[in-house]
Design a protein around this nucleic acid. Sequence first.
RNA 1: GCCGAAGUGGCGGAACUGGCAGACGCACACGACUCAAAAUCGUGCGGGCUAUGCUCAUGUGGGUUCGACUCCCACCUUCGGCACCA
Length: 825
Amino acid sequence: MKNYNAIQIEEKWQNLWKDQDSFRSEVDHSKTKYYVLEMFPYPSGKLHMGHMRVYTIGDVLARFLRMRDYNVMHPMGWDAFGLPAENAAIENNVNPAEWTAQNIEHMKNQQNRLGVSYDWHREVNTSSKDYYRWSQWLFLLMYKRGLAYKKKSDVNWCNDCNTVLANEQVEKGLCWRCSSVVETRELEQWFLKITDYAERLLNDLGQLKEWPERVKIMQQNWIGRSEGAEIAFKIKEFPEQEIRTFTTRPDTLFGVTYMVLAPEHPLVKPLVEGTEREKEVMEYVSQVRQESDIDRTAEETPKTGLFTGCHAVNPVNGEEVPILVGNYVLMAYGTGAVMGVPAHDQRDFEFAHKYSLPIRVVIQPEGEALDAQHMQEAYAGEGYMVNSGSFSGLSDVEGIKKVTAYLEEQGQGDFRVTYRLRDWLISRQRYWGAPIPVKYCDNCGTLPVPEEELPVELPLEVELSGNKVPSLANNEAFIQTACHLCGGPARRETDTMDTFICSSWYFLRYASPNSTTAPFDKEEVDYWMPVDQYIGGIEHAVLHLLYARFFTKVLYDAGLIKCDEPFSRLLAQGMVYKDGAKMSKSKGNVITPDEIVATYGADTGRLFILFASPPEKDLDWNDQGVEGCHRFLRRVWRLIDESKEELVKAKESAQHSENETILQRNVHAAIKKVTHDIEERFNFNTAISAIMELVNAVYVYRQSMDSYEYNRDVLRDALEKMVILLAPFAPHLAEESWSLLGFTESVHYQHWPHYEPGMLQVDQVEVVVQINGKVRGRITVPTDCSEEQLIEEAHNNHRISELLAGKEIIKAIAVPGRLVNIVVR
RNA sequence: GCCGAAGUGGCGGAACUGGCAGACGCACACGACUCAAAAUCGUGCGGGCUAUGCUCAUGUGGGUUCGACUCCCACCUUCGGCACCA
């Protein structure tokens, strides 16, 4: 007997797949296409268990669907721009481009050793000229469509990464990449107008029936839509000026007792200029603005404010209320000004108490009498309007409509929808990225680079100076260019694009990775898109998945693609832990795919990853569990190895014994369950357990008689089906087994078997008999036994009849094939 | 604070539309094979008890139902998202 030598087997078949180009995909209109995609990795050079998990999940699907006769595209590529390449350049004194290229080569080898069935003809690399040229082209498309603009504003700055960050890349005030505190800086930067798409990005979440609810909710929260009114307050001291404020509760307008401006609000300075309060107010403003966002927006931070000396005029009743500047008002949300309604907003309530501002109740809950003097907290619930002039008596809901309508009539306000979502800041002050294709000419101004001049090439030679990679701003040769309009000298934009731009359209590029005349070939894209199944980590729930949806919608609007949502089905796979903690060097609990492949082979690693937990749940790595999976594969191997002789010795007979009928039933039950678990439920763990049960059943069959008595056809069929079912999970062992069973064609080109319902039929079933819901006996009855017969049979059972003696039977319920429940008193 | 997900043996997990709770695997125990070990094969394996059976048990407490891990209500714990968002 030969031992199961996984390493040797795996290498053999990987080479063969490569030589035969087994997983190439082409447009074929005669077949149903299926696009399986795993989020492409950053080429860090190190493949970790999280990667192995995504790729394995994707590969099982890809292999399964190929056997189900779909035309499957399963591509892979590299999200190759980004900061780590610069850090590596500094540490190892190596060029970022070189470092990236080496890592890609290494990681590609690692991926291939996992036996993942990629179509490498479609490989993309976002840092290659052929790719980023089209990232730049897409920037220009955005520009043409009025979706890219440059603006001076307060932006998030990470000192460690030495660059600005998008809002989505700040987590709780910290940089998403390095966790250092994010500061605010005022800079002129490029933005994409994702807010123009806020409504559609929100609404179309409803189309995404096959997305996990939690991801959709995260996006919904992030977009943060709220309805209300924008209201204009005139300023008593400056009658030509007004303050616009956003509120979700226009029905509380009569309860306004003050107004607060954000310290950044452009009106603050003019209001106090030349007054005795100027010095104090402006000092306060600069003090607040120095605080980091994390401090300023923390819940514990006390609310502070300062009177400007000016007054706002309430448009509904002409009341004059003081205008203050306050630290709790954010310039970035709404209009940067808040009307203070202390009776009905908790923050306003606290603020009013602190600064002795009046509180006026204008909403009364049904059956209660709120009294401003005795309120312990603001009342934000339902009620009817009071102290509100002609609006008094209306419900809050009616009030919102009527007050807004009144303001519109008066030209003092509008219905308004406000989003939490901000425009996407895409400028990065970093070298290793796609240059933003813009020029600045003294005569002609800011100019997008004409398409014919693309790509704006990133200079590859880097002079390391000190401990950093200099940004393009230090590269005069890059900066100097000619204006294509006036021919005069012009300067290039030196910022590069956020790498999330590159990953917002890569799934389109896979359809035609070599297209030189467009970012993608329309016909190919229309055939393959949308991605049928996308798989990746939950950490991209808002970031990448929101940006990619945005890009897709812009391309749809531009008529370049036919779909307006990129990913039909999404699977957010769980994390890989070890001993309840994230794998990390500092904890010393890292297991790498390389080690697993070297010790047990890729098939064992794949099987364990799939068997230990359903894909969307977190997985706890367990060495003994891996051992168990390896044992199972050895068990399969032994079965195939021993069967070579057994199949020769076995008898040929059309007659099937009971044992053979049972084995066949097990085969068909396994086909049914494995198919259903992969296709409908993505529960690979239970699919694998079904295969294990089949393997156990074959062992039981073999043990039940002498090998001369085996039925050759039945045994052979069971073994073949077993190998086919195993093929998506342990592709190398399946391939080897298939060839040992005498086949010359790859198991991966076999058609997935269908189960026959007739084969699952049994003549007799065991049915549980309950009395008052407790199991009291079992009866064996014909499968087609009627409900009446079932109940009769239950009564006939010796033990049951004993237990029923002297009891009053109230009713009896029969569920054919399952149970009988007799209710007694 | 708001929103969401999850709580089942020693462990990972299973139980699809309400119908035998614990499939499959790990760990453990015993047996076979062996001089021995490993490997392999077999048997057992939620708790309690007066043990061919009874009883308790799916985070806690209620409810609906002939019957609840599954549905409803309240609560507890853990994890995740949002959060001075007007």
